[in-house]
Amino acid sequence: MHKKVCITTYNPVCYTKIRVTVHNVDSYFCIEDQFITQMGCSPLSYMMHTRAERKMLPKSSPHAAQRLALRALKNQSQVQAHMKSIDKLKKGLLLFLFFFKIGCFTFGGGWAILAQMEQEFVDKRQWITKAELLEMVAVGKSVPGIMITNISMLFGYHVGGIFGGICTVVGITCPAILILSIVTVFYNSLKDNYWVMAAMTGIRAAVIPIIASAALSLGKDALRSRMAVLVLIVGFAMYMMGVSNIILVLMAIGIGLVYHFARVKV
């Protein structure tokens, strides 16, 4: 679409050809349209007029066609720049709305959200390919923070720069704040109710298997080497001895760094 095209048109005053570089064919027609409105005929048919006939046409200064062409081009680029900023806003708004919707209606955490993203942006809009989305997931998982906000940040940045990234993250965050604020109010006023307490006691018993199954599925993926199992055991022992979580994670990062560079050297 942004391929440059050279078009030869005619200078109406001195019969010479002028070359105009336009960004696409549409903008040539835009020039031609302007020529017609100002000169009363198309550049080509102007050439066909006899000198006498030409005198009857509205007067135009020398190089009028060039100036006309330049002005048309300038308009074109201004319009393009304007469209670009509108596009950017539109895209940002679309990203915001989509991720707001996801934040409102998608149950089941990260993976359910990813499935929706794939449906919308890979299959329907084709803004990214599936391979790109998978790369974003892999990277988003290895950056600290909430996986899905990381992935949406990477995606938003890919699609719409920093502005796009901020739109997606804010979009996915707003519903959580709204919904959880309401839930908290209910939670505080209901948690001393006899029946709610009974239900909550049952739910608390279910939270343990929920966390355990999350740990299990994480383990299937992460505990493939003997080294990893060793790290798990040592980590668990240190946790039990009261080492702070943050220290544990930082140590894991540090050991990973040392291990990598030691191995690279050897």
Partner: peptide, 29 residues
């Protein structure tokens, strides 16, 4: 590759921490 190696250490530690939480929560539940 650095990131991959680091994640190879961080993930097991995450599981270890989750197991620790299970112990704490289990005790209280």
């Amino acid at each position: 590759a650095v990131v991959r190696t680091i994640m190879g250490f961080v993930k097991p530690v995450c599981i270890a921490m989750l197991m620790g939480v299970l112990v704490t929560l289990g005790r209280d539940t």
